[in-house]
Simulated scan of single mutants.
Amino acid sequence: MAQSAITSAPLSPPTVAKLPLRAILPWAAFFGLLMLVLLYFVGAEEGATSLLSGAGVHEWVHDGRHLLGFPCH
């Protein structure tokens, strides 16, 4: 059997790319606002707080409302 004399270089630790806060902040604000709007439509879009007339939104989010524990009846 032949032996090889291959040596490997020591591995350097992986580098983590750092994102500046200025790059993340607009996206975080956008998704935060989007989640608040979604929470409103699932949790409160009916009755006295309704922004849209009719029961269309209520019927679209009805099962999600019950799944998340919001009362609706």
Rank of each mutant, 00 (worst) to 15 (best):
A44Q: 13
A29N: 03
G43E: 06
T15K: 08
G32Y: 11
G47T: 10
G56F: 13
K18S: 07
L33P: 03
R22F: 09
I24M: 06
I6S: 12
T15I: 15
A17E: 06
G32T: 09
G47D: 06
L19P: 03
V42M: 06
E46C: 05
M1R: 04
G64L: 11
V57Q: 09
L21F: 07
F70R: 07
Y40T: 02
A23M: 10
S12P: 12
V37N: 04
S4C: 02
A17L: 09
T49P: 00
P13H: 02
A44L: 12
A44W: 08
S8W: 03
V42K: 07
G64A: 14
C72P: 07
F30E: 02
S8V: 15
I6F: 05
A55M: 07
P26W: 03
V16W: 10
A5K: 05
L34C: 12
L67M: 07
L67W: 04
L38H: 14
L52K: 04
L38I: 05
A55W: 08
H58S: 12
A29W: 04
G69S: 12
A44F: 15
M1Y: 00
S12Q: 14
G47Y: 11
A55Y: 12
R65V: 10
S8I: 13
T15E: 13
L19I: 10
P20T: 07
E59D: 11
P26F: 09
L38Q: 08
P14N: 05
A48S: 11
M35F: 15
F30R: 07
V61T: 11
L52E: 00
C72I: 03
P14D: 06
F30K: 01
P20D: 09
L25D: 00
P10S: 04
F70Y: 15
L21H: 02
A9R: 14
L25P: 01
A44R: 10
P71W: 01
L52D: 01
K18T: 08
F41L: 08
F30S: 02
L38T: 12
V61L: 09
G43C: 02
D63I: 09
M35V: 14
L34K: 03
L33E: 07
D63C: 07
C72Q: 09
V16M: 12
L36E: 11
L51P: 03
C72K: 05
L39R: 15
E45Q: 11
G56P: 04
S12Y: 08
A44S: 10
L68V: 02
T49M: 10
W27D: 00
G54W: 15
P71I: 02
R65W: 04
Q3E: 15
A5D: 15
W60K: 05
P10M: 09
I6R: 02
P13M: 04
H66F: 04
G47W: 15
S50H: 10
L36C: 11
P14Q: 09
L11F: 05
T7E: 13
L11K: 03
L51M: 14
E46F: 15
L68A: 14
M1Q: 07
H66D: 14
A48Y: 02
L52Q: 03
A5T: 12
G43N: 01
F70K: 11
F31A: 01
M1S: 07
Q3M: 12
I24V: 10
F31S: 05
Y40K: 01
V61A: 14
I24G: 00
L39E: 08
V37Q: 06
L67D: 06
D63K: 10
V42S: 05
I6D: 11
A28P: 00
A17T: 06
E45T: 05
L52T: 11
